[in-house]
């Protein structure tokens, strides 16, 4: 589903965010991406979404090149098929919780009753249905994060890119969000989760890829002798 080939990213200020990263994530797979702060996790997501162009290397999603030789239409198509939980949430400030989730559906052409039902369902999932009409500006960081989770999941995407989706949540809510991601994965979505939480990483039987200084330092799938 996601194929990254010798991917490098050097920012203008000389920072090497990614160096020769090779990574293949199959359709329907769920992968945890771990690594210290600044390891390049967010940068990798940005390349997959066509937000930032790589300095060299190639990115392919669903069999289509994102880089190099990117076609804006295809980038848009990937973004439409993806549910992204941004590390910085990227909520629509000045709008209500409900509007934030609904807008994520509207851009896909989903409106009316279908939009409202899905929104209610996902807000219920993350425990925010009773805050639906509150402006996101009035929410705590954890609540904002959950709006981001609800917005991504409501789109019922083929691919989920979750960048620290539990970073601001208590243990119980973290579990709940992770369960939602597992559930989406069981429904067929390819899920990539950038995460720090040691207790999650220790107990999971899923593939864990470790980035360090922009390189793949460890890949549990390679150790187990499956995948790449």
């Amino acid at each position: 589903m996601i194929r990254v080939c010798e991917l490098s990213k050097h920012y203008a200020d000389g920072t090497a965010a990614l160096r020769d990263v090779d990574l293949v994530i199959d359709q329907g797979e769920m992968v945890f991406l771990r690594g210290p702060s600044g390891a390049g996790k967010t940068t990798l997501f940005e390349m997959i979404l066509g937000i930032e162009p790589p300095s060299s290397g190639a990115v392919e999603v669903a069999g289509q090149r994102v880089f190099p030789g990117v076609h804006p239409r295809w980038v848009r198509e990937i973004r439409r098929r993806t549910g992204v939980i941004f590390q910085d949430f990227r909520l629509f400030e000045g709008r209500t919780v409900r509007e934030n989730v609904e807008l994520g559906l509207r851009v896909l052409g989903i409106a009316g009753q279908k939009m409202r039902t899905r929104t209610d369902h996902r807000l219920e999932n993350v425990g925010l249905l009773d805050r639906a009409e509150a402006p996101v500006g009035s929410l705590s960081w954890g609540e904002r994060q959950r709006v981001g989770v609800a917005r991504a999941l409501a789109r019922e995407p083929d691919i989920i890119l979750a960048d620290e989706p539990t970073g601001n949540l208590d243990e119980e809510m973290s579990e709940r969000v992770l369960d939602l991601l597992y559930e989406a994965n069981q429904g067929g979505a390819t899920v990539v989760v950038a995460i720090h939480a040691p207790h999650v990483l220790k107990s999971t039987r899923r593939r864990v890829v470790t980035l360090r200084d922009g390189r793949v330092a460890d890949d549990s799938a390679a150790r187990d002798g499956k995948g790449s």
């Binding site: 979404l49 937000i51 848009r76 198509e77 990937i78 973004r79 439409r80 098929r81 993806t82 992204v84 941004f86 990227r90 909520l91 629509f92 400030e93 807008l103 994520g104 509207r106 851009v107 896909l108």
Partner: peptide, 16 residues
């Protein structure tokens, strides 16, 4: 501006 950028990240068309 920021909102427009986020909409694009969510796959909104330029028309939208």
């Amino acid at each position: 501006q920021q909102e427009m950028e986020t909409l694009r990240l969510l796959g909104a068309s330029e028309g939208f």
